[in-house]
Amino acid sequence: MKSGSNLEKVFEKGEFALTGECGPPRGADLEVVKEKAKHLVGYVDAVNVTDNQTSIVRMSSIGASKVLIDMGLEPVMQMVCRDRNRIAMQSDIFGAYALGIRNMLCLSGDHQIFGNQQDAKNVFDIDSIQLINVVHTMREEGKILGGDDIDGKPEMFIGAAANPFGDPFDFRPIRLAKKVAAGVDFIQTQCIYNMPKFREYMKRVVDMGLHEKCHIMAGITPLKSLPMAKYMAKKVSGIDVPQEILDRMKGVEKKKRAAEGIKLAIEQIQEVKDIEGVDGVHLMAIEWEKKVPEIVEGAGLHPRPQVS
C-alpha cells in the first residue's frame, strides 16, 4: 500500500472504482458542504473536493476535505498550480496529510480570467506534472524540492487529470505517459460526451501500456438541461459535446430532460466500464449531488465494495 486510502484499496482489490465530486461553497458555511456531501455517503469510494474551480473564490479544498472526513467520507483533495508557489503547496500537502487527507489530485488549474478575481497575479511556479513528482518524491524518498529531508512523510495516493479532448490530440497520450513517469497513481478524465474519440484515446493509451501503470477513471457529468448541454458544448474549453448529444436532449420535452440526462449518464457509465484500460468512473454531478444515488444504482454500481 502506498497510502492506504479507501480509493487505493478499491483499486488494489480489482474493483471498479467510483469517485464523486463536491464543490465547496462561496463562503464559510459548513452546512452547504454537509448538505451536498450527505447524498454521496455510501455511494462513492472517495469524493473530489475542488480547489477554487473556474477561479472563483471558494472555501479551501483542505478545509472542505476535513469536513468530509468528519462525515465519514474520504476526500480527494484537489490542488491547482495557479494560486500557490512551491513553498505554499508543499506546506499545504503536509497540513492536508496531518488532517487525515490521503488522496490528492494535481492540476494546472483554470486560468483566473474565468473567475471573479481576474486581476489576480497568477503563480504557476510549478506545473501539474512537476507537482505529481513533488508529491511522489515526498512519499517515496521523504524529501521536498531541493532535497531536504522531511519529518513525517505525507503518503498520498496521487491523482491527476487527463483531457482526451484537448488539442493536440496526438500529444494527449504522451502527456499521460509523462504523468505516469512523474509518479501518478490514478487519473480522472475530463467529462466524456464524445465516446468514439474517448475510445480512440484509450486504444492509444492501452497500446502504450499506460493502463497497467496507473488507474484510469472515466469522467462522467450528467446533463441537467438543454442550456447546460449547450453551455458545456460552447463555453467550457476542452469539453467536446457532439451534436447528437445536443439533439438527444433537444428531442425530449423540457420536463423530461433531466431524466434523459441521467439515463444518458447511466448508459455512458455502462459503456466506459467495458472499455479496456478503464478502472473506474469519476462522477461529477455538478450542483446535482442528490442525483448521485439514482445514477450509481442505475449503473449497477451500488453497493460500494467494503475494503477496510
Binding site: 500529444f171 504522451i174 476542452g238
Partner: peptide, 9 residues
C-alpha cells in the same frame, strides 16, 4: 513546461 493543459482547443 511539460505540454499543453486541457484547455488547448
Amino acid at each position: 513546461l511539460n505540454g499543453p493543459c486541457g484547455g488547448s482547443a
